[in-house]
Design a protein around this nucleic acid. Sequence first.
DNA 1: GTAGATGCAAATTTTTTGCATTTAG
DNA 2: CTAAATGCAAAAAATTTGCATCTAC
Lengths: 141, 141
Amino acid sequence: MTKKVDNENIISRQGYRNTKSRAAVVEILENAEIPLSAEDIYLRMKESGRSASLSTVYRILELMENNRLVERTSVNNNKAMFTLVRSGHKHHLICTSCHKMVALGGCPLKGLESDISRETQFDITGHRLEVYGICPECRKR
Amino acid sequence: MTKKVDNENIISRQGYRNTKSRAAVVEILENAEIPLSAEDIYLRMKESGRSASLSTVYRILELMENNRLVERTSVNNNKAMFTLVRSGHKHHLICTSCHKMVALGGCPLKGLESDISRETQFDITGHRLEVYGICPECRKR
DNA sequence: GTAGATGCAAATTTTTTGCATTTAG
DNA sequence: CTAAATGCAAAAAATTTGCATCTAC
């Protein structure tokens, strides 16, 4: 598991400075199995004694997004959620009642992108998939 | 094409009043092949002489969402986009450069929801899929 | 030392809400 | 007539920006 080092390198490799805040954002996203909002990240940084301002968090996320290190997802009503781009990308199942997220195995889009590219003439760069439902706990209520 | 009547009925059928603003929102969403933001809808209502306040548009969309007449998608940076729920649901291909949207045929999730349900014990209620890429026009530049 | 990163406060943008007024049923 | 819908203005929530200060390189 040298992911952490890899990601820090990705930031510095692109000519950006490897600051504590950036390392913290990368590490927090790495250890999150589910998408996080900017505020989630901000709070986790604070808790772990690596406080940065919320605007810094937004700026780091913007930088990472531009460099394809994170993807922006929207889930919890009008709040942007961010996920680290990993080699094996994931999709999530979200309970519409309690907002719990569960990672799904596999990607049903695999192999389909080339078909879409041929049909539409677009260069396909990625996709976002979320599945919604009611989790067993919420159903019981 | 009696979609319009159908949708108006859906609103009134649920015990809600069939107002001009509501009919206008339904009609505008019907004629849109792509997701629209609340403001898009607000502007189209104004253009077509059926002005309503932006807050009314938001309230109508909220009502429709709660009654599963529209789905909320987020695409254009931090702006909620709304799509009318139709029997044959659609997914979209979005140019990350100019934000153009193109509807895709077919749904690769068809049939997959029952597998996910079995594996996770969730009741699956829906999903959202967006594919990203660069359109031919933007690629040329 | 210097360009780039950060913090803070203020500005913008998007969405929601309170309340008086209007309207569909 | 009456509950529900709307408009308006103000509030709240989320994100971005300007500028002075700090820090990685």
